[in-house]
Design a protein around this nucleic acid. Structure first.
Length: 322
DNA sequence: GGTAGACCTGGACGC
DNA sequence: GCGTCCAGGTCTACC
C-alpha cells in the first residue's frame, strides 16, 4: 500500500447485538479512563492508539470509535488515521470487539438472574484489546489510589508504547527503569516477570482464555502469576467473562457499609458480602459491580459524562467515603 | 491456616 | 516548603 493510500484513513463499521449501547457499555468499567483509552464525553467517542500487523512489522494506528446513530444496536464505527489493508482491518476489528465485549452471550441470563438491571440494560463490561493489557492494568490498580493507576498507565504508554506495551517490550525492560520512569514502584519486577511469561507463552499463562475450562482451575492458575492475589485474580476472571468471583477490596467494604448498610469488622463484612451476592450465582460480579457503578453515577452523573481529567480521577474508596 | 510487617507512591495535613 | 502519616493488595516470614 502506498503512502498516499495510507493517508486516506480507513473506516470500519460493524453490526453489534440489538441491546448494545456504545456510551453505556464502554463507560461500564474504570479501564475506559485508563491510557491509551481516551473517552471524550463531548462527542461520546473513544479514542485510542492500536497496533496491528505482526512481529517485526507493527503498524501504529490512531482510531476513534463511536456509534453514530446512538440508538440501541445501531452499528459501531471505527475511524482510523490511515488506510489499512484487509489483514490489518481484521486485526483491528477483533481488538475492538474484545474491548466492547460483543461476544458476551450472558446478557439475557444475567437480566433473568438480576431483573433490577433490565431497565438500565447494564450487563456488558468494557475491557482491553488483549488479556495481557487487562492483567497489567489490574496489577497497576492494586494497593494504590486510582490517580496513581491512571498515572502508571499513562507513563507505560508514554515511555514504552503508545498503544500499550507488548509482553516482549516489558519482558526486556529493566525493573529499575519501569520504577523510575513509569512510577510502578515495587510492582516493577512483577510486571517484567508477567511480560516474560506472556512473551514466551509459558504454561503459567497458557489456556487462560480457554472458555471450556472450569472457573476454579483458571482462578488457581491466575493466583500463580506474580503480583496476582485473590483480588486481582477475581478481577481478571471477570475480564475473562467469568463472573462468579467477587474481587473484594476496600471499595467493596465501603460499598457494603455505606450502601448495603452492613456493619462489623472487615473479616465478617467480607463473609456477609459473599453471602449477599451468592444468590446471583455465576453472575454475582455483574450484580455487585453494577450496583456499585449505579452508586457512582448517583454521585457523579452518568459515566459517559465523566471527564477523564476531572471526574474520572475521583474514584477511590477513601475519597468516596461518607 | 492465620497474622504481622514490608513494599512504593502520592495526597493530605500540620508546622 | 518540608516532614509525617495514611491508603491501597500482595508477598514473605513466622507462629
Amino acid at each position: 500500500m502506498s503512502e498516499r493510500e495510507r493517508a486516506l484513513g480507513s473506516t470500519l463499521k460493524f453490526a453489534v447485538p440489538p441491546d448494545y449501547v456504545f456510551r453505556r457499555d464502554v463507560c461500564s468499567y474504570g479501564y475506559f479512563l485508563l491510557a491509551p483509552n481516551r473517552w471524550d464525553p463531548a462527542t461520546e467517542s473513544l479514542g485510542r492508539t492500536f497496533e496491528v500487523g505482526e512481529p517485526g512489522a507493527w503498524l501504529t494506528v490512531r482510531a476513534v470509535i463511536d456509534q453514530p446513530a446512538g440508538s440501541n444496536g445501531s452499528p459501531v464505527r471505527v475511524r482510523c488515521d490511515q488506510r489499512l489493508d484487509r489483514a490489518d482491518l481484521a486485526s483491528l476489528r477483533s481488538q475492538v470487539r474484545r474491548m466492547l465485549n460483543l461476544e458476551d452471550q450472558g446478557v439475557r441470563a444475567f437480566h433473568r438472574s438480576a431483573p433490577e438491571f433490565r431497565r438500565s440494560g447494564r450487563a456488558r463490561l468494557f475491557r482491553s484489546p488483549t488479556l495481557f493489557e487487562d492483567v497489567i492494568k489490574t496489577v497497576t490498580s492494586c494497593n494504590v489510589a486510582w490517580t496513581s493507576t491512571i498515572r502508571m498507565n499513562e507513563r507505560l504508554c508514554t515511555v514504552v508504547n503508545p498503544a500499550f506495551p507488548r509482553p516482549s517490550q516489558l519482558a526486556r525492560r529493566k525493573p529499575g527503569t519501569l520504577r523510575a520512569r513509569c512510577g510502578v514502584g515495587y510492582r516493577d519486577v512483577r510486571i517484567v516477570e508477567i511480560g516474560r511469561l506472556f512473551a514466551s507463552g509459558a504454561s503459567a499463562v497458557d489456556g487462560l482464555e480457554d472458555s471450556s475450562r472450569p472457573d476454579d482451575e483458571v482462578y488457581e492458575q491466575l493466583l500463580g502469576l506474580p503480583g496476582i492475589g485473590p483480588y486481582a485474580a477475581s478481577n481478571v476472571m471477570q475480564l475473562l467473562g467469568r463472573y462468579g468471583h467477587l474481587p473484594v477490596d476496600t471499595e467493596t467494604m465501603r460499598h457494603a457499609r455505606s450502601v448495603l448498610g452492613m456493619e462489623g469488622e472487615d473479616k465478617r463484612l467480607r463473609e456477609r458480602v459473599e453471602e449477599h451476592y451468592r444468590p446471583y450465582g455465576e453472575h454475582r460480579f455483574r450484580a455487585y459491580w453494577f450496583e456499585l457503578w449505579a452508586d457512582y453515577e448517583r454521585r457523579r452523573g452518568p459515566a459517559w459524562t465523566w471527564d477523564p481529567e476531572t471526574t474520572g480521577k475521583t474514584f477511590t474508596a477513601s475519597s468516596l467515603r461518607d
